[in-house]
């Protein structure tokens, strides 16, 4: 598809989880939500109201939440653990490894407050390494949708597939990019633009930045290929390889430049032995309390930074 219209409406992708999990719970009584106290913030309140018998709240006890979800999954339930990304990926990391990924159980970890979006909560709450940690576990699928509709579709896809999935959402509202009829496949990049001069591969809340950067680059006569790589594991390796002829690739992510999308793409490029890569993302440092947009700016994750990197690669 090609994105031309200016996106205006904004919604947090955690709201997509809140809405989609209700739809899923309605049609499938095996869908469970395991809350870890912060249900309101993670938008599970509608689900709780409608399906109390498919809901568990373990209180402030992430490790137990992960174990209970694993136990539920052994009986055929499809539990969605709901919490913040920093806790869902780290406080329960070993439980996810041992009791979810190792036995390959059908547990989904659905996390709000991904990346720098919990800006004013400070560095303790900004999940900058979560997708990298999850990507390291065999059997795990790792996903972050770019906007409300794509996130809903990807949650539905995650519920429909068997196996552990880590889903990451934004706390903050991000622009709507896709219309609600757009379809998404886990592990398959969404091509937003085709181009010849440079390829931009973005995911999550940075896709909107990449779209804007691509539009401005096009206005300056630079032809941009743009991919929404919503799934970083399994990575759409073919889609990355298709960028190798262009040779100049930029990754953009709201995540540490280590171990996330940038690293996953770098692995493909390095093994192919051709192509030039620039990674835009969190510069391997902890955040601090600040508005989300300010934190993006500090880490060089802005439209201007993407354009500057593109120009730099083109002059090399």
């Amino acid at each position: 598809m090609s994105v031309t219209k200016k996106a205006v409406e904004k919604k947090a992708t955690r709201a997509a989880f809140g809405d989609e999990i209700v739809r899923l719970g309605e049609s499938n009584k095996d869908i469970y939500v395991v809350d870890i106290d912060i249900g309101k913030s993670c938008k599970t309140d509608k689900f709780i109201e409608k399906f109390p018998m498919q809901h568990i709240n373990v209180g402030i006890a992430e490790q137990n939440g992960a174990g209970i979800a694993a136990g539920l999954a052994t009986t055929g339930k499809i539990p969605f653990i709901s919490t913040y990304a920093v806790f869902g990926s780290l406080r329960m990391a070993e439980q996810i490894r041992q009791e979810v990924c190792y036995p390959n159980l059908n547990v989904k970890i659905a996390c709000s407050h991904g990346g720098l979006t919990p800006g004013n909560d400070g560095g303790s709450h900004q999940a900058i390494e979560d997708m990298g940690v999850m990507r390291s576990f065999p059997n795990m699928t790792v996903i972050m949708g770019a906007d409300y509709h794509s996130t809903r579709k990807l949650i539905a896809e995650a519920a429909a597939m068997y196996g552990p999935v880590y889903l990451r959402f934004t706390r903050d509202a991000v622009p709507m990019i896709y219309d609600e009829n757009e379809t998404f496949e886990i592990g398959k990049a969404k091509k937003l633009r085709d181009g010849e001069d440079i390829a931009i591969i973005a995911n999550g809340d940075t896709v909107r930045l990449a779209i804007e950067a691509a539009e401005q680059l096009e206005q300056n006569g630079i032809s941009v290929k743009l991919l929404d790589m919503h799934t970083i594991k399994p990575l759409d390796v073919e889609a990355v390889k298709d960028c190798l002829d262009i040779g100049r690739i930029i990754t953009v992510e709201d995540h540490n430049i280590l171990n996330g999308l940038g690293s996953a793409v770098a692995e493909v490029i390095a093994e192919a032995g051709k192509g030039q890569l620039a990674r835009i993302g969190v510069q391997d440092r902890f955040g601090e309390s600040a508005p989300y947009e300010k934190l993006l700016e500090i880490n060089g994750i802005t439209v201007e930074d993407i354009i500057a990197k593109a120009n730099q690669l083109l002059t090399n």
């Binding site: 992960a66 209970i68 136990g71 052994t74 009986t75 539990p79």
Partner: peptide
């Protein structure tokens, strides 16, 4: 034990 709790809830 957490897994056992999950099985028992189910």
């Amino acid at each position: 034990l957490s897994c056992a709790v999950g099985m028992a809830i189910a």
